[in-house]
Amino acid sequence: MRPIRLIARLDIKGPNLIKGIHLEGLRVIGDPQTYAQRYYEQGIDEIIYMDTVASLYGRNNLTEILEHTAHHVFVPITVGGGVRSVEDARKLLRSGADKVAINTAAIARPELISEIAEEFGSQAVVLSVEAKRQNSGGWEAYTDNGREHSGRDVIEWVQEAEKLGAGELLLTSIDQEGTRKGFDIALLSAISGLVSIPVIASGGMGSVEDLVAAVQDGHADAVAMADILHYDRMTIAEIRDQALAANMNIRELSI
C-alpha cells in the first residue's frame, strides 16, 4: 500500500494562526511558530503555512515566520498565499520553504506554474485548489481563500495544471473545511483518478475514520489537518496509532 503523509495545515492571518469554517469566520488560535514546532516535535510529516489574506492585500508576510520556524522544524514546509511570481517563490524557498503553493495567481495566469516549475522543479510547486460543490454537479475553483469565483471547473483546471508542471495538488473542499464532518470523498476520488501527481486531501478531518476514507475511498496520497490539531481534539501520536491500527502505511516514529 502507498505510503501516506500526515500534514499539519496552519492558516495564518498577520502574525496569528487562525481557523475558520468554510474558510470564513476566522478565529485566532495563537502563535503559528509555537504550533508548528509542537507538531514537529509530536511527529508530523510535513507543515503547510497558508497566508489567508495575502492575495487580498497583494503581499506575502510569511518570510519572517518561516525563517524562525526553519530553526526548529526539520520536516518539509510548504508555504502558500500571495505567491505571484518566480521572485516571490524564490524568496520563500530561500527562507526555508521546500515548496510553494499557488492558487489565485495561477488561475489568473496559468503559465506561472510552468515558470516556477522550470526554475525550481515540479517538486517545489503545489497547486492549491479551493473547490466548491456546484448544484449542477462538479466543483468550481475559488480564489482569494475561498472568497472569489473563478468560473473554472476543478476537474479541467487540475489536469491543465498537471500538464503545466504542478508537482502536487492541495485539494481543499470549501464545503467541508472546518466542519469536522469528513473530507469531500467524491471530489478526492474524481481528482485522484485523473492526475498522476500526489493529491493532498484538505478540509473536514474530524476523526481518523475520515483520514482512512480519504485514503481508501478518495485515494489521497496525503492528508492535511487543522482543526483536530489546533483545538487539541487529538494528538498526532493518537492519530498515528489509530491510523496504524487501521493499516495505513505511515511513518513509524519509534521502532
Partner: peptide, 13 residues
C-alpha cells in the same frame, strides 16, 4: 541551485 536555508539550520542544530 536550490534552497540551502534548511540545510544550514540543520548543520547548526
Amino acid at each position: 541551485i536550490g534552497n540551502l536555508y534548511s540545510v544550514c539550520r540543520a548543520v547548526e542544530k
